[in-house]
Simulated assay, not measured.
Amino acid sequence: MSDRTPVQNAELALLLEVTGTPKPGNVDRERDFADLRFEHFMAGAVGARPGLGLAADGEPVGRAFEHAVAGMADQSAGNTQFGALLLLAPLVAAAGEGDLTPAGVDRVVRGTTVADAAAFYRAFEHVDVAVDDPPEGMEPLDVRHGSDAIPELEAQGLTLFDVMAESADVDGIAAEWAGGFARVFEAAEALLADDGPVPDRASRVFLKLLAEDVDTFVVTRNSPDAAAEVQRRAQAVLDGEEDATELAEELVARDINPGTTADLVAGALFVALERGLVV
């Protein structure tokens, strides 16, 4: 068993996630986007560490997340791991409490406050994040308003868990918050059950997750049809009908980026590392 701390494992999880290849549509150690490169993800992982340290030390999840995002953003490309940090902050907090289980993480997220929600909104001022327009009547709570939305949050008494639960049907990260981090823990078990180099395991788990459900970041950034196509073709790779590397090249060329799935892999890597995954 490694002597790494939860914070070290969280940083390592972010680094291992980006080294996995091929991960169709995502930056990996062999593929970059024009304005978003492998090195930016490495810098983002290092920059996020102090914020994740706050989570491990028992500081409020929202504050830890906001600081992690601010640190992540201290590189020239902007947003690299926003969604991954939104998963990792409560996971690290649960690990810091000695209860990295679905029940333990559920207790952490359900214990968040209005102040945590305010910190989450402030985090959007550090980087540009692709999000859907809010439902009709919810415009005052548009996360793109950043701090300007905090009075409305306070007026409605919305905690960070409330905010996540409201988006759980359209956002894969929010769905994890509302659903006990089910996909993260399941993927962690798949990583532990696999063998070979960890980046290769991460690539295989990425494809498995991508084939299981549509990637909500692709839905938001591209279209529902694009997300359905990516899901279908990930399954074709698993069935031996398509080549993973060729699909990776094509999706990067088409600017289709299944970022939510990559975030889930980062969370799963953290859980697996905490449970004894050997690097």
Rank of each mutant, 00 (worst) to 15 (best):
D171I: 04
V252C: 11
H126N: 12
V109G: 05
S76G: 14
L12A: 15
D169I: 12
D28E: 05
G83F: 09
D255M: 10
S223F: 10
D148P: 03
A236V: 11
A13V: 03
T112L: 04
A202P: 14
G179E: 08
D263T: 07
F185L: 01
W177V: 07
E246Q: 14
G172K: 00
A43P: 02
E125F: 09
L12S: 12
A117T: 09
G104K: 06
E242D: 14
V129Y: 03
A226I: 08
G71S: 13
E189T: 11
I173L: 14
R29F: 01
F124H: 13
D128A: 15
G172V: 05
A73T: 10
A234N: 07
G180F: 09
F41A: 03
E17N: 02
R275T: 01
N9L: 15
L85Y: 09
D243M: 12
G179S: 04
A178K: 00
A10V: 08
A202W: 10
Q231E: 14
G62D: 00
A115H: 11
G267V: 02
A165Q: 13
F217W: 08
A182M: 04
R233A: 12
G137L: 08
D162R: 10
A56I: 10
V170G: 11
V237R: 05
G276R: 07
Q235I: 07
A94L: 07
A236T: 10
A236W: 10
V18P: 05
A227F: 05
